[in-house]
Design a protein around this nucleic acid. Structure first.
Length: 466
RNA sequence: CGGGAAGUAGCGCAGCUUGGUUAGCGCACCUGGUUUGGGACCAGGGGGUCGCGGGUUCGAAUCCCGCCUUCCCGACCA
């Protein structure tokens, strides 16, 4: 059987490209760095969107929408912010047939516009906390684009909140980080992450603290899967987000922002995919099962129709592939697309009153009685999720090495992650960088999320990254 | 943005060095038939401004210049 996909071990970036195109996930757009998200990948994105959106709303946040165009002068109001984003801004200088008096930037993120309106809407401590989120596209002109992982335009959600106290802001950002991002990525995408805070060198431009979730891809590189920032009073001061305290005085609010993007699709591909293609975790799979008639035959077709009806009645997302193509061809097509379960229905199965259910994650083929199909599919949904998560967790742990020195960390980061005392890594960031290694995050020794970067005894997690 | 490689049918490629028939091949696609338990077979068929623009020439896929796009390696990043 000739493979349509370059094996991971041969050339991982090539494997990634092959999966993206062969599984019909995305095409390059005509402008460098842009991307067309095809229906199958967009369907997965919609599951990601709705899962995150539910959790965001559960945290008390309301959705709103702010404009794509931002006055250039807004960006300049926060010194670090403008410095961080200037190199990657797309700026519109002409519109309506003439040169604009003030250029407008295409939003790279929306702290500035939203800050402007927070200032307008917040008068009193009774208006706090103000909890907003928007689903939007943003533009950051990238030097080296990669499908899903780094494109010049991408889709995301960006949450922006304002609070009366620093403690309240910190607690909220932390809550989003753990109860929205970690919970979703773990329980729906089956990806285990390392949760920590960014060292000052890796912080978001304008933030006082940045939290991250770092996933390990199959080639041992790290991917930042979502970030949450405490912005202190930096943006509040730049945009005059002030409120009257209950004591009658006036204070600047403390703001936060947090986002997760279509990059998650890239993470999904590289965290679970294998040499046969994509492997979609069942809870966010467009189809949990695909039903494949082994041959075009009246009995088979009747059985397939019945199974299709039962799956539909049970509310199970499925697809019936009754294309006339060769059986093996249809099998591999759906393997490449990573559908969790394949229900094969053929005369030999039916003679015994059963079907054959094949798991995409293990390749295992299970004979299942016709009456048990729905119950089995339901049971396997959880089993496959758990197996994917557990497999990823074990791979991650096996490729994370506790080391004591920078030299050992450099060696370990060749194939995975290294953990070493932050006190050791802190002075060596430049040296690590010459090996394309960065400090992905800082954690407490027990792996938990620290409150602050200057807590004693922190551990640095270092790796190569996307 | 620096260093390297490349753009010829939907995909993968040959042709270019040494300019000269009607630009080929595999896969995919369409029609008909035989097939179908792991990427089928036979027959017939459709599809190309050779990335874009300019130049050299009697003549350019082929030589020269510019630009665009893609991939790899760096610096930058969700």
């Amino acid at each position: 059987m000739a493979s349509a996909i370059t094996p991971q071990a041969t050339d991982f970036p090539r494997w990634y490209q092959d999966v993206v195109s062969t599984a019909e996930l995305a095409d390059n757009g005509p402008v460098r760095g842009t991307m067309v998200i095809r229906p199958y990948a967009y369907a997965i994105w919609e599951f990601i969107q709705s899962g995150l959106d539910q959790r965001i709303k559960r945290a008390g946040v309301q959705n709103a929408y702010f404009p794509l165009f931002i006055p250039e002068s807004y960006l300049a109001k926060e010194a670090e912010h403008v410095e961080g984003f200037s190199p990657e801004l797309a700026i519109v200088t002409h519109a309506g047939g003439s040169e604009l008096a003030e250029p407008v930037v295409v939003r790279p993120t929306s702290e500035t516009v939203i800050g402007e309106f927070m200032a307008k809407w917040i008068q009193s401590h009774r208006d706090l906390p103000l909890l907003l989120n928007q689903w939007a596209n943003v533009v950051r002109w990238e030097m080296r684009p990669r499908m899903f992982l780094r494109t010049s335009e991408f889709l995301w959600q960006e949450g922006h909140t304002a609070h009366a106290t620093e403690a309240d802001a910190a607690a909220f950002a932390r809550r989003i980080h753990l109860e929205v991002y970690d919970e979703f990525i773990r329980t729906q995408m089956a990806v285990p992450t390392y949760i920590g805070i960014k060292p000052p060198s890796e912080r978001f431009a304008g933030a006082t603290n940045t939290m991250t979730l770092e996933g390990m891809m199959k080639d041992g590189k790290a991917l930042q899967m979502a970030t949450s920032h405490e912005l202190g009073q930096n943006f509040a001061k730049a945009f005059q987000i002030q409120f009257q305290t209950d004591g009658g005085g006036s204070d600047f609010a403390f703001t936060t922002s947090w986002g997760a993007s279509t990059r998650l699709l890239g993470g999904l591909i590289m965290a679970h995919g294998d040499d046969a293609g994509l492997v979609v975790p069942p809870r966010i799979a467009p189809y949990l099962a695909v039903v494949i008639p082994v041959r075009d035959d009246d009995d088979v077709n009747a059985a397939v129709a019945t199974i299709g009806r039962e799956l539909a009645d049970a509310g199970i997302r499925h697809h019936i592939d009754s294309g006339r193509g060769n059986f093996g061809r249809r099998v591999t097509d759906w393997e490449i697309k990573g559908v969790p379960l394949r229900i094969e229905v053929g005369p030999r199965d039916l003679a015994e009153g059963r079907v054959t259910i094949a798991r995409r994650d293990t390749g295992e083929k299970i004979p299942v009685a016709l009456a048990e199909v729905v119950a089995t599919v339901r049971r396997l949904e959880s089993e496959i999720h758990d197996a994917l998560y557990e497999g990823a967790r074990q791979r991650r742990n096996a490729n994370t090495h506790e080391v004591a020195s920078v030299a050992e960390a450099i060696e370990a980061a060749d194939s995975g992650f290294a953990r070493l005392p932050w006190s050791v890594a802190a002075g060596a960031e430049a040296e690590l960088k010459t090996h394309a290694i960065t400090v992905r995050c800082l954690q407490r020794a027990d792996g938990s999320l620290p409150e602050r970067e200057d807590e004693p005894g922190l551990t640095a997690l270092v790796a190569k990254s996307y």
